[in-house]
């Protein structure tokens, strides 16, 4: 059963992503929430989600560091990571891809795009 981890310190953004993705629960996808980077990393290790929507600017551990830990140190290549940033700097995009993120999206994101991307990655047509 596929798992999606949603990581953001803003509760409204978590809620938005949850509502955007809740239709996938009908397909048996499990949605998991985390409020910061450290918590996210623990969950990733324990649950090994297929897809992670990961905020960049967060307390405790930022998204770049989580991404680096997952992709480099833990070498969990099968965890697909979508970085979501509110900064929108071009240099950050390079940084995001350098730490191994699969996709780098700028907020505000389009829910339709998130849904389409999810179906694609999880192979749910």
């Amino acid at each position: 059963m596929a798992k999606i981890l949603i990581v953001d310190d803003e509760p409204h953004i978590r809620l938005l992503l949850e509502q955007t993705l809740e239709d996938f629960e009908d397909d048996g996808v499990e949605l998991i929430m985390a409020e910061n980077g450290a918590e996210a990393l623990e969950i990733i290790k324990a649950e090994r989600p297929n897809l992670v929507f990961l905020d960049v600017m967060m307390p405790k551990m930022n998204g770049f560091d989580v991404c680096k830990a997952v992709k480099n140190e833990l070498a969990m290549d099968d965890v697909y990571i979508v970085l979501l940033t509110a900064k929108g700097q071009e240099s950050e995009k390079h940084q995001g891809l350098d730490v191994g993120a699969d996709v780098y999206l700028t907020k505000p994101f389009n829910p339709d795009e998130i849904q389409a991307m999810t179906s694609n990655i999880l192979g749910l047509a």
């Binding site: 803003e10 938005l16 955007t20 600017m57 907020k107 505000p108 829910p111």
Partner: peptide, 20 residues
């Protein structure tokens, strides 16, 4: 950069929820 970040975060909710 900070202003942009602080504006984008609420805008993400406003725009995202409006679309939903």
């Amino acid at each position: 950069s900070t202003v942009s970040h602080e504006l984008r975060t609420p805008l993400t909710s406003v725009l995202g929820f409006a679309k939903l």
